[in-house]
Amino acid sequence: MEPEARRDELAASLDEVRRRIARACTAAGRDPGSVTLVAITKTYPASDVELLAGLGVTDVGENKDQEAAAKAAAVTAALRWHFVGQLQRNKAKSVVTYADVVESVDSTRLAGALSSAATRLRDRPLDVLVQVSIDGDPDRGGAVAHGAEPDRDLWRVAAAVEQAEGLRLAGVMAVAPLQWEPERAFATLAELAGRLRADHPHATVVSAGMSGDLEQAVGHGATHVRIGTSLLGMRNTLR
């Protein structure tokens, strides 16, 4: 697709996503400016990221270190880069060199690895979101609020991030479990996020909601929504 045609396509999709966010905010009695759109650009080329930046997108998300590092190096626009995928500790040294936010910290050991890397390789704190397991399933990603092993306990992970040098606890992130209704999932997340803020008042970010459920997430207080398909299209049609 020619760059101008792709820009027009992205502009139309972006307008519709912004309208959805605005309608959801109106329904929830919120200011649309209180919700940040994070464009999930995994598998899409750096040229798409540049086009989105030109259209006013400020935040982009990636979920694989190798792709994210190369893309961040190639993109010239000033953007806020979010790492949103599951992260192995041995990738921490790479991720801290380009990410502004890591949204997927779900263990005290990962917090320690990021802290060690950030203190050596960054000149400013790395914002961290604790990934919450809404349904408490220990076999999936996310820190667990009840009955987890100590390394994956939500409250211990948050405390580890808060105390770690080079990190800043910014809030929480979650994905609604497939078998849950989004309303139930995001209501549960809102309760856990509120409990976390009681101990860490500055941890105000709630990253929740994707293309199919952003309205429900905004209705339950999401401050960031992570949008890929509704913004960039179905991946299998673009590869």
Rank of each mutant, 00 (worst) to 15 (best):
M1S: 11
M1T: 07
E2F: 15
E4A: 12
E4H: 13
R6F: 11
R6P: 00
E9Y: 12
L14F: 05
D15N: 14
R18N: 15
R18S: 10
R19P: 04
C25E: 03
T26H: 14
T26G: 14
A27R: 05
A28G: 08
A28K: 05
G29E: 03
R30C: 05
D31T: 02
P32M: 05
S34P: 07
V35A: 03
L37T: 08
V38R: 01
V38P: 09
A39P: 09
A46M: 10
D48Y: 12
V49L: 11
E50P: 04
L51Y: 10
L52F: 11
G54R: 07
L55Q: 09
T58V: 15
V60W: 08
N63C: 10
Q66S: 13
A69K: 08
K71S: 07
A72L: 11
A72K: 12
A74R: 08
T76R: 14
A77C: 06
A77D: 02
L79C: 10
H82F: 05
V84Q: 09
Q88R: 13
N90T: 13
S94R: 12
V96E: 02
V96D: 00
V96F: 07
T97Y: 15
T97N: 06
T97S: 03
Y98F: 14
Y98I: 02
A99Q: 06
V102G: 03
E103T: 06
E103A: 03
S104H: 13
R109K: 12
R109S: 09
G112K: 12
G112F: 04
A113P: 10
S116V: 10
S116G: 12
A117S: 11
T119M: 08
R120K: 15
L121S: 09
D123V: 10
D123R: 12
L126T: 00
D127M: 13
V128M: 08
L129R: 03
L129S: 01
V130D: 00
Q131G: 04
V132C: 06
I134R: 00
I134H: 04
I134E: 00
G136C: 14
D137R: 04
P138Q: 06
R140N: 14
R140H: 15
G142Q: 04
V144K: 00
H146A: 15
G147M: 01
P150A: 10
W155D: 07
R156N: 12
A159N: 11
V161N: 02
E162N: 13
E162A: 15
E162G: 08
Q163V: 14
A164I: 14
A164Q: 08
E165I: 15
L167W: 02
L167S: 03
L169E: 07
A170K: 03
M173S: 13
A176T: 13
P177W: 11
Q179E: 15
P182E: 06
R184H: 13
A185C: 08
F186T: 05
L189P: 02
E191S: 15
G194Q: 06
R197H: 10
R197I: 07
D199H: 13
H202S: 11
T204E: 02
V205W: 01
M210R: 02
L214T: 06
E215N: 01
G219Y: 02
G221E: 01
T223I: 00
I227D: 05
G228T: 00
G228W: 02
S230D: 08
L231N: 04
T237V: 10
L238Q: 14
